[in-house]
Simulated scan of single mutants.
Amino acid sequence: MRVSNNLVGLLNFITFLLSIPIVWAGVWLSKQGSTECEKFLDKPVIILGVFLMLVSLAGLIGACCRVSWLLWVYLLVMFLLIVVLFAVTIFAFAVTNKGAGKVLSNRGYKEYKLGDYSQWLQKRVNSTKNWNKIKSCLIDSKVCSNFRDKYANDTIQTFYSENLSALQAGCCKPSDGCGFSYVTPISWTNNATTVSSNPDCSAWQNDEKVLCFNCQSCKAGLLDNVKSNWKKTAIVNIVFLIFLIVVYSVGCCAFRNNSRDNGYWKQ
């Protein structure tokens, strides 16, 4: 057995073993998922697990059993995966190059405005269908319930100095510009005598399942969170992309070995 064939076989055997718990997790979510967010993830997880399982089997059998056509399919899929991952990485950097929270005077947190982020991201969260699902996930994840419990004993001065996350600042409290009076972290009194031009002020409710989940600031806070996570993911993608290119190169050597051993190459 050639070194490249052994290496491709080993890598794909490890990938095959990793795909088993991924498939199991997807099946578990479909059976045991209690929230819409958990059930939403079951199909993508199962598809990812099955995809990894089939590709790794093709690479494993193709490399170790010298089945050239299976190894060719494996290399084709790997090439397409490299192209797609490269495109996704570039796209992630492109749509996250805009937007940032605005620093407020005498505040430990920032203010987030939807218009500061890329048009593509804005369209995703402005879709009523998409936002209803996202809002349901935010409520199920208890972002604001944990926020309420953590800062329950804060005075107004202490609360204003807290370093809140983008989601907490955008979804769990009204905009500072609304001029509401602080009662608790999720309970505020509207003392304004005039109607504010900020639509978030009228969208705010003290109901724990409403709060500012319908506000533009909440959508902006989510996008700021997405932006941060996508940038981290893009960096991981670059590392993974380099790994895939190395594996693809080794796979090409294994395919050449198969072709020679099966008499497809003439010396």
Rank of each mutant, 00 (worst) to 15 (best):
N198F: 00
C218Q: 13
L222C: 13
A203R: 12
P199I: 08
K227D: 10
N206G: 02
V236E: 02
T233L: 15
C212L: 07
N198A: 02
I235A: 12
L223S: 06
D200G: 04
V236A: 07
G221N: 10
C201Q: 10
A203Q: 14
Q205V: 02
K231Q: 13
D207E: 14
K227L: 08
V236K: 00
I235Y: 09
C215W: 02
C201H: 09
T233C: 06
F240C: 05
F213A: 10
K232E: 02
K231C: 03
N229P: 06
S228E: 12
V236C: 08
V239C: 01
D207M: 05
S196W: 05
T233M: 12
K231T: 02
L223I: 13
N214E: 13
T194N: 09
V236S: 03
A234G: 04
K219V: 08
K232V: 10
K231S: 00
P199F: 13
V239F: 04
P199Y: 12
N198T: 03
N214L: 04
P199D: 12
L222A: 14
L223E: 04
Q216I: 01
T193L: 07
N206Q: 04
C201I: 05
I235C: 08
S202N: 14
P199W: 12
P199M: 06
K232L: 13
A234N: 03
